[in-house]
Structures are given as structure tokens and as C-alpha cells.
Design a protein around this nucleic acid. Structure first.
Lengths: 232, 232
DNA sequence: AGCCACTCAGGTACGCTGTTCGCAACGAAC
DNA sequence: GTTCGTTGCGAACAGCGTACCTGAGTGGCT
């Protein structure tokens, strides 16, 4: 540690840093880090470093790392927006596609949503929009709410499945090729064991439909089921 | 630190602990901790302490904390078991109900599944069972697999929603009453703002159906949608 | 029977984390 | 000019996952 010099002019200029980071900047910086380097890279020190401020300063604006994550979640939901046509099926589908897009854009999101009730401003606004989209389905709000919940549950579930392998690969720190090279032999072994006939058929015979197609297939199923139960 | 006594018989018995914890014991202990005290309480030191062994010893049997979580997930999936009747709808529904039960029994599970491909022995066995359940739906394995994926996505999604509030409450460390007392006023404020008419209707008019009923409603929707698309 | 070589539990330590405390510097008010 | 509330933040603390390495215990060879 450098000793305080006796000579006045040798003293380093007393901090010119008097910049307040502001909650919004903190949240945005945190989202950028999580998006590009993954959640584990998101530490308070890291956020502060990227902002050029001291770590402890962040705590003037954000109570804890956990609160920061809540704010991040609500922030990314704010980017969504749907205009409604009055056709419940089309509207609900477009809400679903937007939620999917958001989840895909921020891979850390699906892992952080469990365990947090969605009560932020943007979450509420989006939930409101979803309910409005489904409103033409029935006069009974309980039915409408049920329909929305089912659709959103499906969306969250599929996207989570869709992201699983991608995330695992990223977490391992391997390249795509290395990853496949390490998983491949294991899968082959599983198939050759003969204990998983259906699974083997799926891997060998099954055609690999694109993620989008899979998503739309399931969405169609869900919406059909809802339509069949609608009182109108 | 106690000095080594000169008298032989005063020396504490040289560690009789020559007990190997074994992977299975480690995993089971870890699951118990996570179930009863939540994931944050699950540290390697804590597991070792509960097992009465040294922390570093665990690494002889488990490569990392992350690996331990993988093992835990696969372990809890091993408890599931379904016998198939040949009626795809009933069988797929019972698989779905079992997955739900597992997710509810281990509240930490839904937060850890995202980002991990399900390739463990038990995961594969369960996936195999689900495919077998859906097999009567079609000869085309791609369709069967799609149906299974949709059902499981829905199940995972709803249970995650179902657990959200419960988990948030637990995380906050408050009692149920304290929690409601802190959330209630906020909700009231949101409603009184008048900006969320549908949401307000949902809270005020909507009847609070039980979680089970909600689950079955959505499951019915999904299965109907699949049935409508089945080539048979 | 004696010794050696090997296995492996686990103490210790490193680098990281989230978070708190209290001080130093500033702007405004008097 | 002095005081006072506000704000940035260095330093420190407790606790984490994990690597290294010591030394005790045991099986096998002589």
C-alpha cells in the first residue's frame, strides 16, 4: 500500500468521481453482462467495474443482488408489446410468440423466473395484455384467466426445454463440436444398450423438426383445447 | 488449539473415521437439505457436516457441486413409476401427474432443471416411459415425441407457476401472514390505480380454483389438442 | 512377523462471492 | 464560514466452491 506522501502536490487529485449510476443504468448493465457472459459472470463487483463505480455504491440504489435480478426480469419484460385485433386466437398466439422471443433472447431468464412471483410493473402490464387478448373467449374471467395461464405455462415449459441443451453447452465452456463429441458416444451407448427402444427410435427415426415448428405445433394443441372448452 | 498431551492415554483416539460416504449417501443427504431448508442452504460444507465427514472428502465421490445437483435431479426422478394400460390418454395423464407430484415434492427442482439436459439414467427411463405411454397415438415416432414434449412442457410450466408464490414466500423468510400483509396492500394499490382492469377483475371476481383443478383443466386442453391432431 | 507402498480422508488455504460499516468529500442552507 | 445531510466507496467480514498436500490406515509382499 502506498503511503500518503507528505508533499501536497504529490497527493493524487481527490476523486473526481462523483457520478451517480442510477438504478436504470445498473439494471441495463447487469442485463448486458448476463446476456453475453451468462448469469454466473454477473457479480456485484463486475457490474460496478463495468459502470466504473465502486462496488458498495450499488447498494445505495439496489438493496441486494436478488432485488437486482427482480428488476432485470421486469425490465426485459418491458420490451414486449402486442396490439390486439380482437381475434382471441391470433392475439393469444402473438402474446405467446413474444414471450418465447423474450425468453430466447435472455437465456438466463428461464432459470430465474421460478420462485419469483411476477408482480413488477411490466409483468403486470403484460399479464393485463394477455388477459385482454383472451377476453373474447368468455365472459367468465375465471375461464379467461385459466386459458392465459395454460398458454403461458406451455410457452415457458417448451422454451425451457428448447434452451436446455444450449445452456448446458454454454455452461460446460466447450465449443459446439467438443460438446457433441462428448455427448455423442454416451447417446450411442444408451441406444446400443437396447433398454430404451422408444427413445432410440426417436433419436434414429425421428426427424428433427425445427424449434419454431415444434413450438407452433404445441401452441396449436393448447389453443385447440381451449377453443373446445370455450363457452362461446 | 489444544496441545498434544504427553500422556498416551490422554491422546484422543486417532480418528476412527474411516467411513466412506458413498455417492448415494451424499446425494440423499443433499436432497434432504434442499427439501427441508431450501437450495441456498445446500453447501458442500453443510453436506459434509451432516454426513460427519470432511468437506474435501466429498470431492472423491462427486466432481463438483454442479455435478451433485445433476445427480440429485436424476435421483428424485427415480422415485417415479408408472404402469401403462395401453390407453394413451390415461397413461400420458398419469405420467403428467407424477411429474407434477415430483416437482411439488422438491420445490428446488423447477429452478434447477432449466439449463440441464435430462440425460441421467432415471431421466431416460422416465422419458422412455412417457414415449411408451404416447406410442398408441401414432406410428410416427416424431408425432409421439412431439406429443410427449408438449405435455411435459405444460406440466413443467404450470407447476413452476404454482410454486412461484410459495417459493417467494419461503425465500423472504416471512410467515404466511407476514407475507400476505406485505403483498396485500401493493395489490390493492395496483387495483385502485385502475390501469389494470382485467387483472383487477381476475383478482376480485375470479373464483380461486384449487391448484389441482387448474392443473387438470390445462392438462385436458393439451390432451384434447393432441387427440385432435392424432392420425388415428 | 515386519516392512513398505499405496490409498484416501480431510485440514488448510486461495480466490471468489454478497454485503456492511464507517469515513471522506461534496452541495446546500443558514 | 460553519454546519449538516447526502452520497460515493475502500476496507473488512463471513461464507462459498474447490485444489493441494499431509499423514494415518491398510493390504500385500518379503
Amino acid at each position: 500500500m502506498a503511503e500518503e506522501p507528505a508533499l501536497v502536490w504529490a497527493k493524487e487529485r481527490r476523486r473526481p468521481r462523483r457520478q451517480a449510476p442510477s438504478v436504470e443504468q445498473i439494471v441495463r448493465t447487469a442485463i448486458t453482462i448476463a446476456d453475453t457472459e451468462g448469469l454466473p459472470a454477473l457479480s456485484m463487483r463486475r457490474v460496478a467495474a463495468d459502470l466504473g463505480s465502486g462496488t458498495a455504491s450499488l447498494y445505495r440504489y439496489v438493496a441486494s443482488r436478488d432485488d437486482l435480478l427482480d428488476l432485470m426480469i421486469d425490465e426485459v419484460k418491458g420490451a414486449e408489446d402486442t396490439e390486439l385485433t380482437g381475434d382471441w386466437r391470433a392475439d393469444l398466439a402473438s402474446v405467446a410468440r413474444q414471450v418465447r422471443a423474450t425468453l430466447l433472447r435472455h437465456p438466463w431468464l428461464s432459470g430465474e423466473i421460478p420462485g419469483r412471483p411476477a408482480l413488477g410493473t411490466n409483468s403486470l402490464r403484460r399479464h393485463e395484455a394477455a388477459l385482454a387478448a383472451a377476453a373474447p373467449l368468455a365472459g367468465d374471467i375465471t375461464f379467461v384467466a385459466g386459458a392465459v395461464d395454460v398458454v403461458l405455462a406451455y410457452v415457458f415449459g417448451t422454451v425451457t426445454q428448447e434452451l436446455a441443451e444450449l445452456q448446458a453447452q454454454r455452461r460446460s465452456g466447450l465449443t459446439k463440436e467438443q460438446w457433441q463429441a462428448s455427448v455423442g458416444p454416451y447417446i450411442r451407448e444408451v441406444i446400443e444398450s437396447g433398454e430404451y427402444p422408444q427413445f432410440s427410435r426417436r433419436v434414429i427415426e425421428g426427424e428433427d423438426r425445427g424449434a419454431e415448428e415444434v413450438f407452433e405445433f404445441g401452441l396449436g394443441c393448447v389453443l385447440d383445447g381451449i377453443a373446445a372448452r370455450s363457452p362461446r
